[in-house]
Amino acid sequence: MYSDQALPISHWRRSWLYVTGGLVLVYLIGPSLIIVPMSFSGSTLLQFPPQSWSLRWYEAYFGSVEWRDATIVSVKVAVMTTLVATPIGTAAAYAINSGVLRFSGFIQTLLTATLIIPVILVGIGTFFLYAKLGLNNTLTGLVIAHTVQALPLVVLTVLSGFRTYDMNQERVARSLGANRFAAFWQVTVPQIRFSIVSGALFAFITSFDEVVVALFISGGETTTLTRRMFTALRDQVDPTIAAISTCLIVLSVLLLTLAQLLGRRRS
C-alpha cells in the first residue's frame, strides 16, 4: 500500500537502518516488558527470567494497607481531576476556538503553560502556596494541582478535535432555532465527543502518574501511590514495586488502547 511511495533503494541495502531502528525500539519498550515477568518472580532477588513463579509480590501489594490506601488516594484524585479538568478544558477550548476572544492565543499559552514550566518549580510553588492556605496533604489540594497539570492535554486534544470539526454545523443549528448551548450540546458534542473522551483519558493518566508535585503537597493519609513508590525506591529496590509497576503498565496500555480506538472512530 505504501510501496508506490518508497524510494528505489532495495530493502537489503537498508538493512542497517532496520537493525538500528529495531534495536532502538527494543531499548524503548524493553525495560517496561522486563518488569512484567519479574513481578511474578518467586524469590526476593529480582531475576530475569525468574527462577520460580509466584504471586507473592501482588499479595504483598494488595495485602499492604499502606499501598492499598495510597492506591485509593491516587484513584480518587485521578477521577476527580478528570471530572474537573475535562469540562473546564473543553469550555476553554470552545472559547479559544470560537475566534470571539481577542487574546485567544495568549489564553491558550497560559492554559498550556504547565507543559513547559519545570514541574519542580510548580511543586515548590504549590507547596509554598498551600502552606499559607492549609491545602497541603489534602485531596482538594491534590485535585486542584493535578487539574492544572492535566488542563493543557484536555485543551489541546479538544482543540485538535475542533480543527477537524466544521463550525458551520453549529451555525446552521443555530439558524434552525437552537440556542448556542443547545447547538453545542446537540450538534457539536456528539461530533467531538471522541476528542473530549481522549482528553479525559489523558487527564486521568496525567494525574495518576504524577510524582513531582505530589512529592511536595501529598503526605500522611493523602499520600499518592506514585509518591509512596518514589519514597520506597529511594530506600531500596523493593520487588513489590515490580507488581505495582506491572499494574500501572497495564493501566497505561488499557487507556492508550481506548484512546487509539476512539481516535480511529474519530477519523
Binding site: N168, R171, R174, S175, A178, A182
Partner: peptide, 20 residues
C-alpha cells in the same frame, strides 16, 4: 436578535448536514 430567534432558513456551501 440572536440567530436562533430570527426564523431564517439557511443553506451553507458545504450543506452542514449533521452526520450523527
Amino acid at each position: 436578535m440572536p440567530p436562533h430567534k430570527r426564523n431564517i432558513g439557511m443553506v451553507f456551501q458545504n450543506y452542514a448536514l449533521f452526520p450523527h
